[in-house]
Computed example of a mutant assay.
Amino acid sequence: MDRSNWISAFLMQWLLMSVGSSPLSVVVYTSCKVGLPAVLPCSVASHFPSDLTPHIQWQTISDSVFERMGAELFQGESYKDRADVPEEQLVRGNCSLFLQDVRFSDAGIYKSYLVVGESSIKNRIFIQSVQLAVIDHKAIQSVMTGEDLILDLYTDQAEQVIFQNSSENDWTVLWERGAVKKSHLKERGNKLTLRKVSARSAGTYKVLDSEGLALSTVKVTVTEPVLPKETETLQIQSALGKATMSMPPLSLNALFLIFILMIQIN
């Protein structure tokens, strides 16, 4: 066995010891809310030998997700500009897959592999399976009459916001990406502001993607402003003063009777 083959065999044995022999039935479960970043965990060793350039692959059942060998990398079509295994972490044995702006279609089982061997003869060593679940956002908000309601769109995947009033069954389209904006709506970044809400703004808001799936559901209640104590006291005093001034004056007969009663008592 020449020296290059001996080194390759040694590295293969070292990698097998470092990775271990996790059975395919062992799956790590993780979850992420749609539109947020996700990390799919993976670890192979505390540190790679200095003369070894790690080569990592991530795949789903049907797609190639990501591949890195040193500075060279490949991203699957559905993961362009969203998937990465940072090189500086990979050389330290952290082969975790980082996904940005997670989509519902990203849900599923991912498998990681180490690729070893000469250019003509490659072997893949299975590391781990990770099952990713992608869930929507749910929230409850309360806003006072006359204030602004801010809805989080979370991601550029948001295409539409629909609204159902608390007292109605029908849904109405409140906002659509690229459409002419209504005067009471303000879009900035991934947030949508509804200006000066009224009692009719109470209800359910859904942010939908291009497939009509709900990225988020927000139940909104609208309350009346609470008056400060000083203002409330002044209003009560004012009301009492008006009531006193509106009382009719005593008649002469009533005054005469009061005068007679006072004389009898004395």
Rank of each mutant, 00 (worst) to 15 (best):
L194F: 06
V65Q: 09
G212I: 05
T155V: 02
E72L: 14
S8W: 04
F104M: 06
D63H: 11
Q237R: 08
A243C: 08
K182A: 15
A38S: 04
F126E: 01
L97S: 06
D63F: 05
V91F: 02
S22C: 05
S8I: 13
Q128P: 03
D84V: 09
F66L: 01
Y79D: 09
I150F: 05
Y113N: 04
L16F: 01
L227D: 13
S96E: 08
A179S: 12
K219L: 09
Q75K: 02
I135Y: 08
D81G: 10
L40G: 09
Q59Y: 06
Y205R: 03
P23G: 05
I236N: 05
K182C: 08
L257A: 13
T30K: 01
E232W: 09
T223H: 12
K196F: 12
T244S: 12
Q157E: 10
M17V: 15
R92T: 08
S4M: 10
M247G: 00
K242L: 12
N190V: 07
T217G: 03
L90R: 04
H137T: 09
Y154A: 07
F126M: 05
Q59C: 12
Q100N: 10
Q131K: 13
R92D: 13
S166C: 07
L208A: 09
E187D: 12
R195M: 14
N123A: 11
I162F: 04
E176D: 08
E230T: 13
N266R: 11
A202D: 02
N94M: 00
A83W: 00
L16S: 09
E187V: 15
R195A: 14
S22R: 15
Y110V: 00
A179T: 06
I263A: 08
Q160H: 05
K242V: 06
E232H: 04
T233E: 15
E176W: 06
I265T: 12
P49S: 02
T145K: 14
T60K: 04
I109W: 01
S50N: 10
Q100R: 13
A71Y: 07
D2F: 03
K182Y: 06
N94K: 01
W6Y: 09
S129H: 06
L153A: 00
V39W: 10
G20W: 00
T53G: 01
Q141D: 10
E176S: 11
A199C: 00
A139S: 15
V44N: 06
K229T: 12
L40P: 05
S183W: 02
V26K: 11
Y29N: 15
I258E: 14
F104D: 03
A158C: 01
M69Y: 02
